[in-house]
């Protein structure tokens, strides 16, 4: 028992390290934030998969912050309603938007009149996770890797076809074809399960899928994942190669982050960053996020802001390349 107490666990050490790293800023700022109920904004309807994620963090952050956190669902317009609501809220750190950074950034280009200037009106606080999109084929496909796939599509001329889900899938498919100098017909699906039977029947040559669905189907043995879109291999799926390893220069990372209105003071942002960091560093959170097909992602507020700006820039090109019309 005492031995256990004395043995420094990884978790305790990390917590100590985090505390040490943050103590100067905390000492100088002397903020009493948070001292009342915090609201997390979720851009998805109650009960959806993404809502589960936001509620997980609401519960965990509430414990470390010692304050009640309520989740307000503001679904609609691809997340624009929630983003705009956050941007217009009082910049005091009590209205916190937990959402996909790439989707927030993409909205700048998916709409003719985006309601907010994402990089200017929102301030990044912390990351949550990073997850790649995945290129997969049916289990009995002759294609072994991306090189095989490229050869197959080339051989079929313009006649190959592929399934996509979500805007990120559309984009990854289009970028891959363009970089490899290929042509194929895209068949968009709204969810992975919709696409499964068509993939399995052999009517489609490959599929660009979200990680949650792709990994679960690879476990079922119905598909094989050929590559991920992230620049490096994921920690949670170390055996799946990246597109880059095959010479296709793709760096498309999906990531979730925490955002507040721009005018929020530094000390509040730093405190909130630390609260999330404490939750993100627990093994439970790592396990929970791996279930969503991604790795835990931790950083400083500046890093979040930089990635947000970079993602906005990236998506300008993507939307043009994938010929996604604006609304």
């Amino acid at each position: 028992m005492f031995a256990n107490l004395l043995k420094p666990t990884r978790r305790a050490l990390l917590a100590l390290a985090a505390a040490a790293a943050l103590s100067p800023s905390l000492a100088s700022a002397q903020t009493d934030y948070p001292n009342k109920t915090i609201t997390f904004i979720c851009a998805f309807p109650a009960g959806s998969g993404a809502d589960v994620l936001v509620r997980y963090f609401a519960e965990r952050v509430s414990k470390v912050a010692g304050q009640t956190i309520i989740v307000e669902n503001k679904p609609g317009a691809n997340g624009n309603i929630a983003a705009e609501y956050t941007a217009r809220a009082k910049p005091d750190g009590y209205t916190v938007y937990v959402h996909a950074g790439n989707s927030t950034a993409a909205n700048m280009w998916l709409f003719k009149k985006p309601p907010i200037d994402v990089a200017k009106d929102l301030r990044g606080v912390q990351f949550i996770n990073k997850q790649p999109f995945m290129i997969a084929v049916r289990k009995d496909s002759p294609v072994r890797d991306i090189n095989d796939l490229t050869a197959l599509i080339k051989e079929k001329g313009g006649d190959a076809s592929y399934a996509t889900t979500a805007t990120s899938g559309k984009v990854l498919g289009a970028v891959y074809l363009q970089l490899a100098g290929l042509q194929a017909v895209e068949v968009p699906y709204s969810t992975g399960p919709d696409a499964l039977n068509d993939i399995m029947s052999g009517a489609l040559d490959f599929a660009v899928l979200d990680p949650v669905f792709a990994l679960s189907q690879q476990r079922e043995g119905s598909i094989r994942i050929l590559a991920v879109s992230s620049p490096e291999r994921m920690k949670s799926t170390p055996d799946i190669p990246t597109m880059k390893e095959y010479g296709v220069n793709i760096d498309q990372l999906g990531w979730w982050g925490v955002f507040v209105p721009t005018g929020t003071p530094d000390d509040v942002v730093n405190k909130l960053n630390a609260l999330f960091r404490e939750v993100l560093e627990t093994p439970e959170t790592e396990k929970f996020l791996n279930g969503f097909g991604g790795d835990v992602f931790i950083g400083t507020p500046e890093e979040v802001q930089d990635l947000l700006v970079k993602t906005v820039e990236q998506w300008r090109g993507y939307v043009e390349l994938a010929k996604i019309p604006q609304n």
Partner: peptide
């Protein structure tokens, strides 16, 4: 619309986008 990503019959009301 899932195929093109364009909205239909929404009359500019954002609550009808999805």
């Amino acid at each position: 619309d899932i195929n093109t990503g364009l909205t239909r019959y929404t009359f500019g009301i954002s609550g009808l986008w999805e």
